[in-house]
């Protein structure tokens, strides 16, 4: 079995683990982490697809995709976390009022 395929299966397993937890958890922070693991699995699939053996240079196009994806993901994660923090502040102030 080729190295690329082996790592692809690793990526698919990450996707499976992430989806499983994503559906079952109700905790917001854990949901964010699960989505990040999901994205890591997708990225691993792309990186594995780009690998063309130990001698040949790897395909740079998927590498560029993953670099872009990483930046996009950290942005979205930051937005989600800012929302969580804000929501937490609001709920806290409601707790204090009552």
């Amino acid at each position: 079995m080729s190295t690329a395929l082996l790592y692809s299966f690793g990526g698919i397993l990450l996707i499976g683990v992430a989806l499983h937890r994503l559906v079952l958890t109700t905790d917001l922070l854990r949901r964010v982490v699960a989505l990040n693991v999901f994205a890591a699995g997708i990225a691993s699939l792309l990186i594995a697809a780009a690998y063309r053996g130990p001698e040949a240079a790897a395909d740079p196009v998927p590498h560029a995709f993953v670099l872009t994806g990483i930046v996009v993901l950290v942005s979205t994660t930051a937005a989600a976390l800012a929302l969580i923090r804000r929501l937490d502040d609001l709920e806290r102030s409601v707790d204090h009022d009552t």
Binding site: L35, F38, I42, L46, P62, F65, G69
Partner: peptide, 25 residues
């Protein structure tokens, strides 16, 4: 509601990206 929207949207775009993965592969 916005947080649920963000999670749904992110899951949607990640599924789309997974599709792009398979297309390129």
């Amino acid at each position: 509601a916005g947080l649920t929207y963000l999670f749904a949207g992110l899951l949607g775009s990640l599924l789309f990206l997974l599709g792009v993965d398979y297309l390129y592969a």
